[in-house]
C-alpha cells in the first residue's frame, strides 16, 4: 500500500467556486477518501427566521394558510423560475469551462447569462435576488408586450446557446476531461440521496416540477435524464434543461391568462407544512411550523447542494487528485445556500 497523505482542500482555493472544505486522503495521486466540512459561512438563517416576520417565504406559508394565488401569478412565477434555471445553468457552464481552462467558452457563457440578468432587471428590478414574490401572488406584473419581447429574445438566444453548447458536447478536449469521470450509478444516487441534474444524470426520471406546482401542471415537458452517470452526463442534462426552459417559457407565455397577480392575505400562519420545489440545482425542501403569530416556531430549508454533498463524497472516492475541482463543480455547489 502506498503511503497515505491528507490534503486540505478549501474553503478558500483558486479552483473552488464556493467555500467548501474537503480533507482529501490520498494514496499517490488517487483520492481514497474525502471528508467534507461545511460551516465556514454559516449564518444561522433558520434561527433568524424565528425572530423576524415570515413574509419572505411564500410557498410554504401559502400552503399552511391555504391561500390560492391567481392563475396569472402562477404563470409569472413559472416564467421567472425558468429564467432562474437558464441563468443558473449558464453560470455553471461558464464555471465548468473555466475549471478545465477554456476561458473563451467561459466568457461566452457568462455573456449570455448577462442577457438573462438584464431581463430580470427589466421585469423585477433585481438581477439575481429579485424579491418579486409575495404571499398571495407576485408584486409585479409583466405586460404582454414585455412577454412577447422576452420570447423574441429567447428565440434569438437559443441559436447562440446551441452553438455554444455544441462546443461542450462535441469538443474532444471537453469530453476528455468529463467522460467516464465521477461515475454515480443509479443505485448510489438513490442510496446517497442525490437530487436534481446529479440524480437525473444517473438515469433516474424524477423532477419535482412534475408535481404541478405554480403553472407546471399546465405545461408539457419531458424529464431529461442521462445514461452514462458521469460528469459529461451531468453537463449534458443541464444543457438539455436550458433548451427545455426556453420551451417552457414559450408555452407559459402562450397560455398566460389575464387577471390579477395577487390576492390579499390576512392573519398569521398556524400549522405546519412541507413544500418541495425543483430549483436549478435540484429538489429543495421547506418545512415551516407556525404558531398563529408573526413569528415561526421553525423554518427548515433543505437545499439541493446539502443533499448532494454525500454523492460528491462518493464520486470523489477513487478519483484522480487533478479531477477534484471538476467533480466538486459537477454537483453545481451553492455552499452559501447550503450553510444557511
Amino acid at each position: 500500500m502506498s503511503k497515505r497523505s491528507i490534503v486540505p482542500f478549501g474553503p478558500q482555493h483558486p479552483v473552488l467556486p464556493e467555500p467548501i472544505h474537503l480533507d482529501l486522503v490520498l494514496e499517490d495521486e488517487k483520492v481514497v477518501e474525502a471528508i467534507p466540512s461545511i460551516g465556514f459561512i454559516h449564518r444561522g438563517l433558520e434561527k433568524l427566521v424565528e425572530k423576524r416576520n415570515f413574509h419572505d417565504y411564500m410557498y410554504v406559508i401559502e400552503r399552511i394558510m391555504d391561500v390560492e394565488i391567481p392563475d396569472r401569478a402562477k404563470y409569472l412565477r413559472t416564467i421567472w423560475c425558468e429564467m432562474s434555471r437558464l441563468h443558473s445553468h449558464l453560470l455553471w457552464l461558464g464555471l465548468l469551462a473555466d475549471a478545465f481552462g477554456f476561458e473563451s467558452l467561459f466568457m461566452h457563457c457568462w455573456r449570455m447569462r448577462e442577457t438573462i440578468l438584464d431581463m430580470f432587471e427589466a421585469s423585477t428590478g433585481g438581477r439575481v435576488i429579485f424579491s418579486v414574490n409575495k404571499i398571495g401572488g407576485v408584486l409585479k406584473d409583466m405586460d404582454n408586450s414585455m412577454l412577447r419581447t422576452f420570447v423574441d429574445m429567447f428565440d434569438k438566444m437559443e441559436e447562440e446557446v446551441r452553438q455554444l453548447t455544441n462546443v461542450f458536447l462535441k469538443d474532444y478536449t471537453v469530453a476528455n476531461r468529463l467522460k467516464g469521470v465521477g461515475i454515480l450509478t443509479k443505485e448510489d444516487a438513490v442510496l446517497y440521496g442525490a437530487v436534481g441534474p446529479m440524480m437525473r444524470a444517473a438515469g433516474i426520471e424524477s423532477d419535482t416540477r412534475k408535481l404541478g406546482y405554480a403553472a407546471y401542471g399546465d405545461i408539457d415537458f419531458d424529464i431529461i435524464t442521462g445514461k452514462d452517470c458521469d460528469s459529461f452526463s451531468r453537463c449534458e442534462v443541464r444543457i438539455n434543461e436550458i433548451f427545455q426552459s426556453f420551451n417552457i417559457i414559450r408555452q407559459a407565455v402562450a397560455k398566460i391568462p389575464e387577471g390579477p397577480v395577487s390576492v390579499d392575505v390576512k392573519g398569521n400562519p398556524n400549522g405546519e407544512a412541507f413544500v418541495r420545489l425543483e430549483q436549478p440545482r435540484g429538489e429543495a425542501i421547506f418545512y415551516f411550523r407556525g404558531n398563529g403569530t408573526q413569528f415561526l416556531n421553525r423554518a427548515r430549508v433543505r437545499t439541493p447542494t446539502f443533499a448532494n454533498i454525500p454523492s460528491l463524497v462518493k464520486i470523489l472516492e477513487g478519483c484522480d487528485f487533478a479531477d477534484v475541482p471538476i467533480l466538486v463543480l459537477t454537483i453545481d455547489p451553492c455552499v452559501s445556500c447550503t450553510e444557511r
Partner: peptide
C-alpha cells in the same frame, strides 16, 4: 421499498 432519504429536520 427503494426510497431515498430526502431530509431530516428537528423542531423544538
Amino acid at each position: 421499498i427503494g426510497a431515498r432519504l430526502s431530509q431530516i429536520c428537528s423542531v423544538r
